[in-house]
Design a protein around this nucleic acid. Structure first.
Length: 430
RNA sequence: GUGAGUGUAGCUCAAGGGUUAGAGCACCGGACUGUGGAUCCGGUGGUUGGGGGUUCGAAUCCCCUCACUCACCCCA
């Protein structure tokens, strides 16, 4: 490459990155696994736009949330409308349900989606400005059995991708009836001991007293341990829902930890909230977070339709997943001369139609250079076409793994390749 | 938004004020014109992130800036 480089180097913008082929292979596998598993539970893909009216998130995600107040990619388009690159997915699905009257279809509705989200955050380990989520939502199912089912589904996906050592944290954040009373009690308790809290927590005492539970300072933890717990304030309905949810988790045999201080960052959650955290992920260790949001559709002016869902962070998931990409063999063409080059092109065309990956490089090389090249790029097979082969109408096929060499027509050699590939797959499955 | 750490070749790293900034790996070529991996030889590749300052002299010391990394806040 001898084109002149521009003086100013262009690079991906902060918090975004290229996913190069080797890594993209892992993404493909994780995405395929997610789709396959979700479809097994009756979920169907629903693709919503990446860009939405800004009001959608102000209303859905919550005008007071951190996401909306300081993390959105918002700009004005040429028509003067305020638009936003979605920071999360749920409001888009809710919008789509109302817009297309999907609530008139047989319920419950089950959707999934995999795609990029955008938050203007300061990047760090496990946190990016463009990141990717696997998202699922269920609408119109009140039964706590479904709360447990989505947790079990998440676990199945994690297991499939070789993720080990995860902890499932669960909680109930109550509903409109019982949560306000708890909030008031908590605020009262925090205000009473305000002088014993760190400056940061003193600020939280009024804004969001639940966050005091997360403080790392010893005295704050000690003080907070005497604060009232949400689980003691749940109304009868929420209490029953929570207990049944836990009962179904037990039924599935999924270990969990009840964490009364678990709050999700988004305002709209009701009743069930859960999080799955992994080891070795740094500070941002939640790979999956979700919960129930029974009021959201109605608050958008839609029908009274309850909802529940979770989001899994793909970057975080992949950093703890153990995925071994299956090895697919391919054929490198070693040809000598113009006539053999044409024959290679034609033969590759045939082999590809049989599902065999072929690489014909358009560079004059000697036989040694061909082999050296084939070896370097990891070819499993080398198909040799020179004068002798052209005359005979039969080619040489060398197996680069065990150095055996075969002679035959394109059809005969295709069979040899396909047979060995099949065996290879079989032995991997055992 | 706040704080800390790190920036030297595509990658991993040397050089800690003193010739023209080096090495390994990788890449390209040769030894080797019909058979790969090894070995040997050669080559490409750098405004030392950028700008300014101190100095006879700066990759090295100082300031600013940018980028990356990690942490806080918050979240996937």
């Amino acid at each position: 490459m001898n084109t002149e480089q521009p003086k100013k180097e262009l690079s991906a913008i902060k918090g975004t990155k290229d996913i190069l082929p080797q890594e993209a292979r892992l993404w493909q596998i994780a995405e395929a696994a997610a789709k396959e598993i979700f479809e097994l539970y009756g979920y169907r893909e629903l693709r919503a736009p990446v860009i939405e009216p800004t009001e959608l998130f102000e209303k859905g995600t919550g005008a007071s949330s951190d996401i909306v107040t300081k993390e959105m990619y918002t700009f004005t388009d040429k028509g003067g409308r305020s638009v936003t690159l979605r920071p999360e997915y749920t409001p888009s699905v809710v919008r789509a349900i109302i817009e297309h009257r999907l609530d008139l279809q047989p319920q419950p509705l089950r959707f999934y989606y995999i795609g990029p989200m955008f938050r203007y955050d300061k990047p760090q380990k496990g946190r990016y400005r463009q990141f990717h989520q696997i998202d699922i939502e269920v609408f119109g199912e009140k039964d706590p059995a479904v709360d447990a089912e989505i947790v079990e589904m998440a676990h199945r996906l994690l297991r499939q991708l070789g993720v080990e050592n995860v902890t499932t944290m669960v909680n109930s954040v109550g509903c409109k009836k019982c949560r306000p009373a708890y909030g008031a009690e908590l605020r009262k308790a925090a205000a009473a001991v305000k002088d014993r809290l760190c400056p940061d927590c003193q600020r939280k005492a009024e804004l969001n007293p639940l966050r005091i539970f997360d403080c790392k300072i010893e005295t704050c933890r000690e003080v907070a341990s005497n604060f009232p717990k949400i689980t003691d304030f749940l109304c009868a309905e929420c209490q029953e829902h929570f207990q049944e949810f836990l009962g179904y988790l037990d039924f599935y045999g999924i270990p969990y930890r009840v964490d009364p201080t678990l709050v999700r960052g988004l305002d709209y959650y009701t009743k069930t909230a859960f999080e799955i955290v992994a080891e070795h992920l740094g500070a941002q260790n939640a790979i999956c977070g979700g919960g129930r949001y029974d009021d959201m559709v109605r608050e958008f002016g839609g029908p009274d339709l309850c909802g529940i869902g979770f989001a899994m962070g793909l970057e975080r998931l992949l950093s703890v997943a153990k995925i071994e990409p299956p090895k697919k063999s391919f054929v490198y063409f070693a040809y000598l001369g113009e006539e053999a080059k044409k024959q290679s092109i034609a033969t590759a065309r045939y082999l590809r139609s049989e599902g065999i990956e072929c690489l014909v490089e358009f560079k004059d090389r000697g036989m040694k250079a061909h082999f050296s090249r084939a070896n370097k790029i990891g070819a499993d097979w080398v198909l040799i076409i020179g004068e002798d082969e052209l005359a005979k109408g039969k080619f040489q096929l060398k197996d680069m793994i065990d150095s055996k060499q075969y002679e035959g027509t394109a059809e005969e050699l295709a069979k040899i390749i396909l047979l060995k590939d099949k065996k290879g797959i079989k032995s991997r499955e055992e």
